[in-house]
Nucleic acid binder design. Structure first.
Lengths: 205, 205, 205, 205
DNA sequence: CATGAATGAGCATTCATTCAT
DNA sequence: GATGAATGAATGCTCATTCAT
């Protein structure tokens, strides 16, 4: 019976899903346990059977998103043939942006939440989240070894790349980019711009 | 009349100022009409005489912020001697990032508010906000004319630059950049990276 | 128009009264702002216009009770003719017990509240509350001066007397005294017992 | 089987014990079925297999407390050598006060619970609770027979004594006795004062 | 005998807003 | 132009209890 929520077996799953939907629909500020409960079709109390607190629920959601993102980044990297660092990094950048645009629900909780809420983010989850950046750093390091990237520190460069991609995704999600500009070519241009800085023959970053 | 709030003439001004102070001091989430009223020294009701709603007040504040940002961008541009587009653009990028980092909560309200709330953003205000991007575009266009920038469309490039700078500011504000990475040189590296893509001799963006 | 609550002029008064009633009817544990509001006929929010918090409301109630008790103790003392310390102290003891039995509402909040709640009791209120014990101590001191009381320290003796009277009142209010025993003569016997210890010719206390 | 909770045989016992511990440690207000269950190591539901409701559990606990108090009073009485009524009564009074002060939260549940909750106190339990007062009454009656106590009715006097001791304990527990007064000598003075009234040579009570 | 899942009612407090004055 | 009084809705969370298993 693959229905909406047939019998109580996966209330936890339903809560996570509805929370994600509500987050994108109304924003974090307007998210409340009661609203989630209403959307799921259970009592607010029941949520606490599956999540210790609102924060814990949010954290679980972030964690899910981080793992999905990791899978997609890795898939992007592995799909490029032949596997050159330049092509891989480009594929990963595209995968990152695609993930953000296609999962604005996840993306907002994952990367746009207040520090206050993230301060208590569990160490284990944090470690998993960091793996995404490490994925970028590894490919950049590979490129340095092969002499195709000209950067001093792969970790720093991974962060720099991330800020560029994140800015792109957030402004698109926030619908702040002028409609006259925000088309497919814009995304491509921004990604290319973000990647070009690493290439040999350009000033070091 | 150097009094706290001399005559009724400028309650509106006082409300905007105190709201900005509160915003910077306590953050958007903790901003309430009552707190503003207390800070201003008037009744909560009085605020409604000058602003239709909390949203309208926020919008007015955003507008002011956009104008402040504009002033600082212009100042950055005008301060560079001799006035080369390359130096000017760098000065503006640094001014943008500085504005964001120094006005944490203000920046969040200006650029990270939920789209729904911005949907009703008045057209006049929107036009003023766009002037900031135009400032970037103008300098880029100058650079193209002088042959120092290699871009196809100055408007698009201004947006691309913006996304990069915005990503940098947001992740720093959200304290998402690893402490091992987030120092002064990181900001410099990211800004340089964002600018290098436009330089002659690199692939067009 | 001496009706229940004719026009909003004295919501504060109504809140205090209803809170007192609810306290005796349902006990402190079951007192809630909502219930008070329902009893008064206003919204829960409105209570906060008159009292900063639930604690502040309780404290105000205690303060009222303390002042009323003071008035009745003083009245009891002043009413005895001729004004001998022995007769005055007896009159005050009877006044204390009468106050407790006739104002169980006040009494419970005044003297049976958890220390936690009293820890934050405002200093001014506390000073007023202490005046009641001082009233006892003064009369005892008078009696010592006149040589009719045999006690070492009037302050300590006032406290000792208080514990006895308080025990009497609380057990009667809690309906813990056997019905076969709890009649008028019992109260008289207990009061006499509490006073006799001070009389000259009995072992010092 | 010196295990934590060896076999299911005595879950009831474990519940009562843990409830008592929690009560002493955290107070009545913070006592919840869930906490008890956690402390015992069973599910909250299981408690209901052994106690009809929270009230029933509390009642059972009160009953145990009354029996403990009875044991300590009897022990105090039996420990005095030679067994004179005066010394015995004093020993019992001290035992009562000690029990109250050493079992703060227990005492509150036993003697300061709202009448409404006690209304449903089972008759059998009530009978057991009364045995404590009878213990006092017996010793007083003995003293009357021996001519060392001068009271009309031993039952009434036992109650009178109880009110005095209860007042002492309650005000000390509620931390209402002035710090300048509340030391060891104060307790002694109050107990002596409570007992002196019965002695031959003082007016009857 | 025991449990996990679930719930409705309740808590103190804060919010943006309205209305009569 | 300004206010004090008032409110309904909402917040995260805990509670004692029930029920199907």
């Amino acid at each position: 019976m693959p229905d909406a929520r047939p019998n109580g077996t996966d209330l936890r799953r339903a809560i996570l899903d509805q929370t994600r939907h509500l987050l994108v629909a109304e924003g974090y500020d307007h998210l409340s346990m009661r609203k989630i409960a209403r959307a799921v079709g259970c009592s607010a109390t029941s949520i606490y059977l599956h999540f210790e607190s609102k924060d814990a629920l949010i954290h679980a959601l972030i964690d899910e998103g981080m793992m999905q993102l990791h899978a997609q980044l890795a898939a992007g990297r592995d799909a490029c043939e032949p596997p050159s660092p330049v092509a891989c990094l480009a594929a990963m950048a595209r995968a990152y942006v695609r993930f953000g645009l296609e999962n604005r629900e996840y993306y907002q909780v994952m990367f746009q939440l207040h520090p206050e809420r993230m301060a208590r983010y569990p160490a284990d989850n944090y470690r998993r989240a960091r793996r995404n950046l490490e994925l970028f750093a590894e490919v950049i390091a590979d490129g340095v070894k092969e002499g195709v990237f000209n950067v001093e520190n792969a970790d720093v460069s991974a962060h720099v790349l991330w800020t560029a991609l994140h800015g792109l995704v957030s402004l698109l999600l926030a619908e702040r980019v002028d409609v006259k500009v925000a088309d497919e070519t814009f995304v491509d241009a921004a990604i290319r711009h973000a990647l070009d800085g690493f290439r040999v023959g350009t000033p070091a970053s």
